[in-house]
Amino acid sequence: KLPPGWEKRMFANGTVYYFNHITNASQFERPSG
């Protein structure tokens, strides 16, 4: 399970990334916590 605010998303080319809808942060590494 991801930390609060984070969700797993995917680009059109299939690349997975993680987006935080609270802070609008995005990253390729899975957030810890």
Rank of each mutant, 00 (worst) to 15 (best):
G14Y: 01
R30L: 11
F11Q: 13
W6M: 00
F28Y: 11
M10P: 02
N13S: 07
K1N: 13
P4L: 11
N13M: 02
E7G: 04
V16T: 09
A12P: 15
T23S: 08
Q27V: 08
T23E: 06
F28D: 07
M10T: 13
Y18I: 01
S32I: 14
W6S: 00
Y18V: 00
R9H: 08
S26Q: 13
K8T: 09
E7P: 00
A25H: 13
F11D: 15
F19M: 03
P3W: 06
A12L: 08
S26I: 15
G14L: 04
S32R: 09
G5S: 05
F28K: 10
H21A: 12
M10Q: 12
N20L: 02
T15R: 09
I22R: 07
Q27Y: 05
R30Q: 10
T23V: 04
G14I: 03
S32W: 11
P4D: 12
E29K: 05
A12Q: 11
S32Q: 13
L2N: 02
E29Q: 09
E29L: 07
M10F: 13
E7T: 08
M10E: 11
N13H: 04
T15A: 09
Y18Q: 00
P31G: 01
F28S: 10
N24S: 10
P3Y: 04
G5F: 08
E29F: 07
T15N: 09
I22G: 06
S32G: 14
H21I: 15
S26G: 07
A25N: 10
G5N: 09
P4K: 09
P31K: 01
S32V: 14
R30H: 14
N20K: 00
S32A: 11
F11E: 12
N24E: 10
F11L: 15
F28N: 09
I22S: 08
N20D: 05
I22M: 11
T23Q: 04
S26V: 15
H21T: 15
A12I: 08
E7K: 04
E29W: 08
T15Q: 13
M10S: 11
M10N: 07
G33Q: 13
N24G: 15
S32L: 13
P31M: 01
W6N: 00
Y17R: 02
Y17A: 03
S26E: 10
F28W: 10
P31N: 01
W6K: 00
A12H: 10
Q27E: 04
R9W: 02
W6Q: 00
K8N: 02
K8W: 06
P4G: 08
F19A: 02
P3V: 02
K1Y: 12
L2M: 08
E7H: 08
N13K: 03
N20M: 02
